[in-house]
Computed example of a mutant assay.
Amino acid sequence: MRNIKLIIEYDGTNYAGWQLQPNGVTIQQVLEEALATLLHEPVRLHGSGRTDAGVHARGMVACFTTEKTIPLRAFSDGLNTLLPQDVVVRQATEVTTDFHPRYAATGKLYRYTIHAGGRRSPLSRLYSWHLRGELDLDVMRRAAACLVGEHDFAALRGAGCAARTTVRRVDGVVIEKHGELVTIDVRGSGFLRHMVRNMVGTLVEVGQGRRAADSIPDLLAAGERSKAGITAPACGLCLVEVYY
């Protein structure tokens, strides 16, 4: 039995997220359908995690098993001919049968993009959160530093999160400006449902002067979602890389 690892890039705009569900087309669904066509057998993909509706990925990792002996290149180049234009397999490799993309992961990197310009941008609208006015990035960085480390992130957990524990480790939060675009890179051991988007919504309130930078420790200690900022729109979020 072969265990095939895929690195997948996708534009999540037109999908109901990664995971299979009955009420919308998902990334997992289109990949499994394309694999079934390629291999002439049903395939179940196991992903490194889930992304919500509208969230993008540059480095989603997934695995499946098969006894087919076709060349590895067929799982990338061949599979891509069967996939829609907004989903692509960047790389396919064969890994040991005990490798699981979720349980073997040691960390993930997400990037959130904000378009901080006066006028909206039609070309950026599907991949960023448009905000009018400037953001104070220095105070946002001071607030972000309070999120680094191992904390109980219950205050930043989205509704419907089924995680058994809300303790997570954030290894770094890097905020940079590129013209009118502001990127917030968040790297950590793992994330709760909507955690990164809720972090961004809270940091934006800091950058707009509506929340003090030094209020973050008390926010985390309170553990109440209602005390944190809004959930940033899904379109600005991208899973950049999964670490092993």
Results as ranks from 00 to 15, higher is better:
Leu6Ser: 03
Ile8Leu: 03
Asn14Lys: 09
Tyr15Ser: 03
Trp18Val: 13
Pro22Met: 03
Asn23Met: 01
Thr37Ala: 12
His40Leu: 14
Arg44Tyr: 06
Asp52Asn: 04
Ala53Arg: 11
Val61Glu: 08
Cys63Pro: 06
Pro71Cys: 15
Ala74Ile: 00
Ser76Pro: 00
Asn80Gly: 03
Thr81Arg: 12
Leu82Ile: 01
Pro84Asp: 01
Val89Gln: 00
Ala92Thr: 10
Ala105Gln: 14
Gly107Cys: 03
Leu109Gln: 11
Leu109Asp: 01
Ile114Ser: 00
Gly117Ile: 12
Leu123Trp: 10
Tyr127Cys: 05
Leu135Gly: 02
Ala145Glu: 15
Ala154Cys: 05
Ala155Thr: 13
Arg164Pro: 15
Arg164Cys: 02
Arg164Asn: 13
Thr165Ala: 11
Thr166Cys: 05
Arg169Gly: 01
Val170Glu: 06
Asp171Gly: 00
Val173Ser: 05
Val174Phe: 08
Glu176Arg: 15
Leu181Val: 11
Thr183Tyr: 06
Phe191Trp: 07
Met199Tyr: 02
Val200Gly: 14
Gly201Thr: 14
Gly209Glu: 10
Pro217Met: 04
Asp218Cys: 00
Leu220Glu: 13
Leu220Trp: 01
Ala221Cys: 02
Ile230Phe: 13
Thr231Trp: 01
Ala232Val: 00
Cys235Ser: 13
Leu239Tyr: 08
Tyr243Gly: 00
Tyr244Gln: 03
